[in-house]
Simulated scan of single mutants.
Amino acid sequence: MRRQERETMRFEASTEIAATAEQVWQVQTDIDRWPEWTHSVRRARRREPGPLAVGSTALLEQPRLRPAVWRVVEVAAPYRFAWVSQTPGVRSHGDHRIVPLPDGRVRVELTLEQRGPLAGPVGWLFGDLTRRYLRMEADGLRRRCERA
């Protein structure tokens, strides 16, 4: 395997939210409504009805990026879901974790890991945008959950 095929780029954002894990989970997994609370998503559409489950898919449209289909690969309600999206040369893995804190709040941890022969160049070109979008998602989720 060539070096560039093993290349990995990782991006992270986190925030603490004055809400329960169940409240945050309800907002975070209602993917069709993401554009209401984060400007990092222009349009989101689940492709199947029902609760989020392994195999569920969603189409996300984000400013300055191509539309992407994400497929859920792990669910541990109400604490975590992970999904993947594939584009030529890059496989993206997004992880959404809700960690209960001793004071009754939660910490939300968002990560995006990109692997593949084009992960380095894509990370270099879009790294700042990716970091900004993860921050927007974390902050928007906090505002939405604390307002509810």
Rank of each mutant, 00 (worst) to 15 (best):
M1P: 10
R2K: 10
R3W: 10
R6C: 05
E7H: 12
M9S: 10
M9R: 11
R10V: 14
F11A: 13
A13T: 00
A13V: 03
S14M: 05
T15I: 05
E16W: 08
T20K: 13
T20S: 15
A21R: 10
A21H: 04
E22T: 14
V27R: 15
V27I: 03
T29C: 04
I31Y: 04
D32I: 08
D32F: 08
W34D: 06
E36I: 01
E36F: 04
E36W: 14
W37T: 00
T38C: 04
H39S: 14
H39R: 11
S40K: 01
R46V: 14
R47V: 08
R47E: 15
R47N: 08
P49K: 10
P49N: 09
P49F: 07
G50P: 03
G50I: 05
G50S: 02
L52W: 01
A53D: 03
A53P: 03
V54Y: 08
V54D: 00
G55E: 04
S56T: 12
T57C: 01
T57K: 13
L59F: 13
L59I: 13
L59M: 10
L60I: 09
E61Y: 08
Q62W: 10
R66L: 14
P67L: 01
P67T: 02
A68L: 09
W70Y: 05
W70P: 12
R71N: 07
R71I: 10
V72L: 07
V72P: 00
E74S: 11
E74P: 11
V75C: 12
A76S: 15
A77E: 13
R80P: 08
W83N: 13
W83D: 14
V84C: 12
V84L: 07
S85P: 02
T87Y: 00
P88T: 11
P88G: 06
V90T: 13
R91L: 15
R91D: 08
R91E: 04
S92D: 02
H93F: 07
G94E: 09
R97E: 13
I98D: 06
V99R: 07
P100K: 06
P100Q: 04
P102C: 05
D103W: 08
R105T: 13
R107Y: 03
V108H: 04
V108R: 05
E109I: 05
E109K: 02
L110M: 06
L112P: 06
R115H: 13
R115T: 01
G116W: 13
G116I: 11
A119L: 00
A119P: 04
G120N: 03
G120W: 09
G123A: 04
G123Y: 11
G123N: 13
G123F: 00
W124D: 06
W124N: 09
F126P: 05
D128L: 14
D128A: 15
L129Q: 01
L129Y: 02
R131L: 11
R132P: 12
R132F: 08
L134N: 05
M136S: 09
A138K: 07
A138H: 04
A138D: 00
L141M: 09
L141Y: 09
R142F: 09
R142D: 03
R143D: 10
R143S: 03
R144Y: 02
A148N: 12
